[in-house]
Design a protein around this nucleic acid. Sequence first.
DNA 1: GAATAAGCGAGACGGTACGTCCCGTCTTAGC
DNA 2: GCTAAGACGGGACGTACCGTCTCGCTTATTC
Lengths: 214, 214, 214, 214
Amino acid sequence: MSTKREQPPGPGRPRDPDADTAILRSAMEVLVEQGFAGASIERIAKRAGVAKVTVYRRWSSKETLLADAIEAARDAIPAADETETPAEDLPGIIDQLLPQWSEALVRPELRMLTARLLGAGPDHPRLLAAYREHHLEPRRERALATLRRARDAGVLAPDADLDMLIDMLNGAVVQYLLLADDTPDPAAARDYLERLFRQAGLRGPAADTPPSAR
Amino acid sequence: MSTKREQPPGPGRPRDPDADTAILRSAMEVLVEQGFAGASIERIAKRAGVAKVTVYRRWSSKETLLADAIEAARDAIPAADETETPAEDLPGIIDQLLPQWSEALVRPELRMLTARLLGAGPDHPRLLAAYREHHLEPRRERALATLRRARDAGVLAPDADLDMLIDMLNGAVVQYLLLADDTPDPAAARDYLERLFRQAGLRGPAADTPPSAR
Amino acid sequence: MSTKREQPPGPGRPRDPDADTAILRSAMEVLVEQGFAGASIERIAKRAGVAKVTVYRRWSSKETLLADAIEAARDAIPAADETETPAEDLPGIIDQLLPQWSEALVRPELRMLTARLLGAGPDHPRLLAAYREHHLEPRRERALATLRRARDAGVLAPDADLDMLIDMLNGAVVQYLLLADDTPDPAAARDYLERLFRQAGLRGPAADTPPSAR
Amino acid sequence: MSTKREQPPGPGRPRDPDADTAILRSAMEVLVEQGFAGASIERIAKRAGVAKVTVYRRWSSKETLLADAIEAARDAIPAADETETPAEDLPGIIDQLLPQWSEALVRPELRMLTARLLGAGPDHPRLLAAYREHHLEPRRERALATLRRARDAGVLAPDADLDMLIDMLNGAVVQYLLLADDTPDPAAARDYLERLFRQAGLRGPAADTPPSAR
DNA sequence: GAATAAGCGAGACGGTACGTCCCGTCTTAGC
DNA sequence: GCTAAGACGGGACGTACCGTCTCGCTTATTC
């Protein structure tokens, strides 16, 4: 799973595990702040308080280092929300969905990370793959579970294409966040997401086809 | 509009106008191929067959040069498609919408350009702004016109939030192309877009809420 | 004579002559202060306020750089002292000889330089050769001229081996300066040199063989 | 006298006394061959066939190690030559003096050692002090004794400043060996020393002031 | 038709990072 | 305690490329 190999316990002084974590965290910070081009080994090492050679001993290239850093920086996503109180009504569903997308818009470092890694795709597909695997996929799984329960509760049409729906929701958020000049404030993010959910078809069954609209 | 100033015709040897176009085209090529970090003035100048100082005399920074290059590389978008044959039926609308989004997926240089510029956003907002103004906005205008006609024809719900709908369509396409490992083939792109249109609500008026389905 | 080649005036920006002098002076300072091992190109360049590559462009190795620096740092030795007022008496001769050796003892940077270069001899004969040629030889020539006039004036025995005498005078001074823990003060240096001159045979003809001493 | 402490016999495996001598000899060899800068603990340990940590356990720094190595490498100088057959004549005296200075010129490792340690003086006075104490002083004592007997025998003037005379003799030899490009051959060394002794005033009593020369 | 001013190629400049090497020190395992 | 085998921070190495600058030469317009 990780690109890091476990070192055999052979003779000699063992590697300092603190150095690993310091390097990975430093790498992530520099990547978020300065981008891939600015994430030189030299800078990463200096910020981690570590000699360059200590980095080179562990990772043979900037790309593998950053891929590991991305993996190590993955949030603890609540695996699946079976435990959540089931919500049959629309507001309950939306309250569950909102924070899942909102944080990507509102937390600046997440916004930066997303922009950097999606932008790095063409040149560094391994970084993008690591991001997809360790950050995007878990979030998608969780969102999928929520939407599935929404569909079962009748809040979404029974024939809704949930995968595509997630693409659309994700996509709208991503392009919003990529095109924004700076981090949107939480209220604006909430407004945008509510408009988004409505247009995506997340409407109460009754509200969907009000008799007066017919 | 352009950041380029016209030079007064004063005395001395006039600037070679061919150099401008060669530099702009070279800049765009390098940007697409190597990304912003790889788009050094040195490389651009070498590819254009021009001395570095010739570039610096015309543009004060890499950012303004690339912004001009992005502007110069804008496609000729048919401004508004009043001329198009009005289409009341769903297949006709889809046939009009499909190519508008398909090309971003299918033409590799467009895909690269999109990825690079969205990724460059945090560091170089002026480039992103130029891209938005000269590439994204015209496309959005055209799409908006098409969707408006679709709504008028009853193919979309009368209360559809067209701006948000475009965000969703664009967004799905963008994240598809950003996450793809390489350029999708046209058939796959078409399949994806058709699923997308369907889930977005582009359905025939009768098929949308068949009385028998209720 | 110098190991530096004159550059052809070909195209391109010419080399900055100020950089040459700054590098040479910086190199000399670092050599005197830190010794050969401490005289890294990096340090020399930093102190000279110059990029490393600017040094490498001019000198291919530390040794050739330092050899040039040694040459450039040679003092302007009054070539030959024909112009000096001829002195037939002993005190006059001594007053002429004293400063010639005293400065090597009393000026700390000369003392350091001598120690460093004589010590570097086994490893870096080119540096020693440069020092010999540009610093030691001119001083020896001047001393030889003075001693020759002293012999002609009868202050030295007519059959004195002047070359060997200079070796002895130089040698005593050199080993004094090399073995001293730090720079001797001028009075001690003067006392030492006067004892040295007396034992070397620089005595007035009459004082040499006082009748009472027999 | 030595900077080495005797270790208490406490528990655990006792230190290998062979390691001490191997390290000291290795240190001396490396110092003579490579100079102070090249005499890294790493190299010394490797040549001694010993782990680096074994060296560090015994000596706290490179300087103290080398100082001990210098002390250990002192030649067995015949303390005072009371046993020598008294010699009233000039050739006898010279035959006694000659080898005392000749060996420093002719034995390459002595020449190297002298150059290295005199050169190291400014940076590492403790090494120089060790060399002075254990190598130079015993030789000076022996030379002084010989010269005293020469003066008593009338081969030197009764008022000769013997300390200064030794400085001159030593000094001439030192600067000869420091400036030479490589080890002089014994015949040249002998010629030089004979010229030196003559100019230093080591002449037979009759030859010194022949009545006819006056 | 010369003077003049700008264009142009070439290359030096300071700066930053590269990836490697060696040093002195520290830390483990195994004897 | 010893050897062996590393890892660690530090520093220098010599190279490469970048954006900037400054030179000599060329070229077209203006006087």
